[in-house]
Design a protein around this nucleic acid. Structure first.
Lengths: 195, 195
DNA sequence: CAGCGCGGTTAGCGACCACTAACCGTCATC
DNA sequence: GATGACGGTTAGTGGTCGCTAACCGCGCTG
């Protein structure tokens, strides 16, 4: 067949394969619980070959977490930019985060658990991105529920992240049901609870 | 002053000191990210002295997590035993878990993140205890919101755990406000969302 | 006061881990 | 058809980690 003409949805590059495998392993065993050889053999190569693609193990985690944070921030900003009204925007934001969590359970887990294993510069960068993402949520929450104080909105946003990110720890429902459940609970908690 | 007559609330034993320090460290750096020497120096002794109190590093984590699971299960059972009505019982359960999470952020974090670092027998034991705790929640949820299917109730329980356990990651409010916020969000999500 | 258990100490051992060194086959290009 | 970038390989190295060994001072108790 003709080369490079198939409807292949972007064959993942080796770097991406490695990051995906590493994310799975980091999520299951923790950053320090995974060896360089474990990651290598998870993608069919062995051990030090990884250093053809990454400068260090720390760099893998750093790239992984900054990528996640950028995707979240970017997606959040997009939802806000196409705002139709405060309540719809909040709904879009919730649905976006729910979809991301359901589609990337390993990444969500790593971001939640392994922030402390980043190098200092990487952690600063990721923290900054995360802060901007939270600020988006704070503004949208306060637009939808105007009586909410800013610190309360921030705490509520974190609580909703916890609710949604709990996904990886429970697989009792199928994807669609889970999405509806989490979206409903998150929106109800944000808009009907006494904040 | 007279020796051993003050209102000291049970001076913590050495084992307890060690477990508390280890919990803090495990929460911050992950199980494999903490060395035996780190734990030792956190309680003022150094390194291998820990082996006078625990058989291994694994045993510390094991004892820590089984203790947490037993406290939760026990507290949950107590709340159910003194039930006055479905809604009150659910409220008691939520408030109990919120209090525990706010008072023991490190323990909650360790239980969430480091279950995978337990030895197989320890993990089985902890999992069994956790399952029983979740089943308490499932029954109470279904009593308070009778239209809820069992798998949905289980997923909702996990989601609420995620919401409440998000506490350690956000300290924007003082304890009382945080307790009210989390309790309100959890109860609203459970009883007013379309489960 | 001899004996001993309790809870410390330091030194060291074997395993493992992140990473480097040195080497090699496969292409694409000139 | 030589060249060199690319992405692999195996062997090895320095450092760290969990744990054991050997030793020791203190406070009970018979």
């Amino acid at each position: 067949m003709s080369p490079a003409a198939e409807p292949v949805p972007d064959k993942p590059t080796r770097r991406e394969q490695i990051l995906a495998a590493a994310a799975e392993l980091f999520a299951r065993h923790g950053f320090h619980g995974v060896g360089i050889d474990d990651i290598g053999s998870a993608v069919g190569i062995s051990g030090p070959a990884l250093y053809r693609h990454f400068r260090s193990k720390d760099a893998m985690l750093g790239e992984m977490l900054t990528a996640i944070s950028e995707v979240l921030l970017d997606g959040g900003q997009t939802r806000v930019d196409s705002a139709r009204g405060p309540h719809d925007t909040l709904g879009d934001l919730v649905r976006f985060h729910v979809d991301f969590a359901l589609d990337n359970p390993a990444l969500i887990t790593v971001q939640e658990r392994n922030l402390g294993n980043l190098t200092d510069p990487d952690r600063r960068k990721v923290r900054a991105l995360q802060r901007r993402y939270v600020e988006i949520w704070v503004e949208v929450i306060r637009a939808a529920v105007p009586t909410t104080e800013e610190p309360t909105a921030r705490a509520a946003a974190h609580a909703v992240f916890g609710l949604i990110n709990s996904t990886p720890h429970s697989r009792h429902l199928d994807r669609a049901q889970m999405a509806d459940l989490l979206t409903g609970m998150a929106l109800t908690a944000l808009t009907h609870a006494p904040l």
